[in-house]
Computed example of a mutant assay.
Amino acid sequence: MSTPGFIRELRASIGHRLLFLPGVSAVVFDEADRVLLGRRADDGGWSIIGGIPEPGEQPADAAVREVFEETAVRCVPERVVLVQTLEPTQYPNGDNCQYVDICLRCRAVGGEARVNDDESLEVGWFSLDALPPLREFALTRIKLATAEGQTWFEPAREAPTGQ
């Protein structure tokens, strides 16, 4: 995944220290209710599409942009599926990041799925009963995107007490 310029600038000042960042992911469905997946260039695994919003960019706009940049598919967000702080990640270069992922269910409205940048090796539409091997991150989001209901979030641990 290519690193946005604003993060490279921050890294010049903070080095490899933990950086807390927003992230977006998109579970995109077509008219046949197949899900759009990309096989990532960094680790070779299949996943839903995602990325990092630019400064000032709204999460829905970032999801639409990331889907188009990576797959050439145009989509519209339908609802927020999940908001979750992920475990910290250390990249091979030593950078440490922790993401708050905002996952959106989206509907494809145009374009032909294809590799559209250097972040993916393959992209394609998959029926829910014929998904390739996926990590729990993607499986959870797909499951929640297919269910009706409220946005998922980690429940608060405890309400603050008065003083």
Rank of each mutant, 00 (worst) to 15 (best):
R17H: 14
R17P: 01
L19M: 13
L19Y: 11
F20K: 08
P22M: 09
G23A: 15
G23V: 00
V24P: 05
S25Y: 10
A26F: 05
A26H: 06
A26T: 03
V27G: 07
V28M: 03
V28G: 07
F29C: 01
A32C: 06
R34E: 02
R34N: 08
L36C: 05
L37K: 05
L37T: 03
G38F: 02
G38P: 02
R39W: 11
R39D: 06
D42T: 12
G44M: 09
S47G: 15
S47F: 05
I48V: 15
I49P: 02
I52Y: 12
I52H: 09
I52L: 15
E54T: 11
P55Q: 04
P55W: 10
P55R: 12
G56V: 05
G56M: 09
G56H: 03
E57W: 06
E57T: 08
Q58A: 15
P59E: 08
A60T: 09
A63E: 05
V64L: 10
F68Q: 02
F68E: 05
F68K: 06
F68W: 08
F68D: 03
A72K: 03
A72M: 00
R74M: 10
C75G: 00
C75A: 12
C75R: 01
V76E: 12
P77Q: 01
P77K: 00
E78W: 01
V80E: 14
L82A: 13
V83D: 08
Q84K: 14
T85P: 00
E87N: 12
E87F: 10
E87M: 12
E87H: 08
P88W: 02
P88A: 06
T89Q: 13
Q90T: 15
Y91I: 07
D95P: 02
D95V: 11
Q98N: 04
Q98F: 09
Q98D: 09
Y99R: 04
Y99D: 00
V100S: 10
V100W: 04
V100Q: 10
D101E: 14
I102R: 14
I102P: 05
L104I: 01
L104G: 06
R105S: 07
C106W: 03
V109A: 01
G110F: 01
E112K: 06
A113G: 00
A113N: 10
V115A: 07
V115S: 05
N116C: 07
N116F: 07
D117I: 00
D118Y: 06
E119F: 07
E119G: 03
L121E: 13
E122D: 11
W125C: 08
S127L: 07
S127E: 14
S127F: 11
S127C: 02
L128W: 04
D129N: 12
A130C: 06
A130D: 11
P132K: 10
L134R: 09
L134E: 02
E136V: 10
F137T: 00
A138W: 02
L139R: 15
R141K: 12
R141G: 08
R141E: 11
I142D: 04
K143Q: 07
L144Q: 04
A145S: 07
T146F: 03
T146Q: 11
A147W: 11
A147I: 04
E148A: 07
E148R: 09
E148K: 07
Q150R: 04
Q150M: 04
T151M: 14
T151R: 12
W152D: 00
F153E: 13
E154V: 14
P155Q: 11
P155G: 14
A156I: 14
E158D: 13
E158R: 15
A159Q: 14
A159E: 13
P160A: 09
T161S: 15
T161A: 15
